[in-house]
Design a binder for these strands. Structure first.
Lengths: 116, 116
DNA sequence: CCTATATTTTAGTCAACACTAAAATATATG
DNA sequence: CATATATTTTAGTGTTGACTAAAATATAGG
């Protein structure tokens, strides 16, 4: 049983949650809507989302339909929608607002990623 | 710049966020309130929380005081508080509710987890 | 300056997890 | 049954990140 926090931690899962926010979609449909991710990965993500109580699953023949459980999400649903709205309207995110108010703090040394 | 989602993903950070939810606390105070975690780890967590815009930092002499930016959190704040209330009052979590609302879908063959 | 206090930063370790490819399961249809 | 379609599960890999211990930085006070 995944926690809601764990479920929301992965960007891909938030992407999926958004895909099933308004309308029900079959797993394959969700897979097609994403790019560069395997079907297996999508299936795993859907399981985590369901286990956290974020989406509901309906079986119909060979298909599995998923949809967000918006009614049960309460303030969480509101918040998620607000983050999506902000992205659309270009409002400052919490982090951006914070950066702006933070005093100059530079002093970053070398990169920590090595390029092969 | 950490995202709010990343910041909330770690249980320890949610614990810290809760500690500074109502009142300002110095980093050392926060460290003392937790058990079995190093000062360094706490400092790192605080940085992530600040970078995500979840907490504000105030410098005073040798001390650094942190407090949640509740006013700026909106529905997110509401949601966080609701999860804490649920834990207190023993309300069902989203996931638990999901389990309960699942129709009599038992009768599926064996377990899906193999016990070593 | 010297020492104690308060916090941050660095280097390194270990486990968790997002991902892929492939095998397995389930259902619909010829 | 045989095959195609839809999805789940498994095994294995690489990256990320939470953690610790120790070194570094900053401030207060004798």
């Amino acid at each position: 049983m995944s926690s809601v926090f764990d479920a929301l931690a992965a960007p891909r899962r938030r992407e999926i949650l958004r895909l099933v926010w308004e309308k029900e979609r079959a797993a394959g449909d969700i897979h097609q809507a994403l790019d560069a991710v395997s079907f297996g990965a999508v299936s795993q993500h859907l399981r985590v989302l369901e286990s956290a109580g974020l989406v509901a699953r309906r079986e119909d023949g060979r298909f599995r339909y998923y949809i967000a459980r918006r009614k049960d999400l309460g303030p969480l649903g509101k918040w998620l929608e607000s983050t999506w709205d902000e992205a659309l309207t270009g409002l400052k995110s919490l982090a951006e607002a914070d950066e702006a108010s933070a005093p100059a703090r530079r002093r970053r040394r070398g990169s920590r990623r090595s390029k092969p």
